[in-house]
Amino acid sequence: MEAAIPPLGETFGGFLADFFMKITKKDIEYIAHLSRLEVDDSLVDKFADQVSRILQYIDKLKDVDVSGVELMAGAALSTNVFREDIPHTPPGPEITLANAPEREDDFYMVPKAVG
């Protein structure tokens, strides 16, 4: 296939552009923001160090010679698994919302989110 999977750096928001780059405090804050997670200031350095080491470990893959190996976009061994277009009876809000932290009638309630 000719269309290319975006390079790793792009896929990861541009902070992993090079062969190996140390994950900074700023990177952690950025990922946390994208994930809408609150990260305690005191933990940011620790996370930066941990994520750096995880990536460093994965970087070992870069030592493997992959010249001549075709680019793979997925690990699936099969193709075309389908479902027919026949409706089932859904379990209903009682089941779906059973673990909702907060609900009102049959709605999930979440803190105000305006995008």
């Binding site: 479902r83 277009d85 026949i86 859904p90 379990p91 809000p93 779906t96 049959d106 709605f107």
Partner: peptide, 24 residues
């Protein structure tokens, strides 16, 4: 205009009561 959703068998009918057409 399918009868069911793209990755599960929940119906796609418009105007159903809240969260009636949902599944895991």
């Amino acid at each position: 205009k399918t009868k069911t959703k793209i990755f599960c068998n929940c119906p796609t009918t418009f105007g159903a009561p809240p969260n009636a057409n949902t599944c895991p």
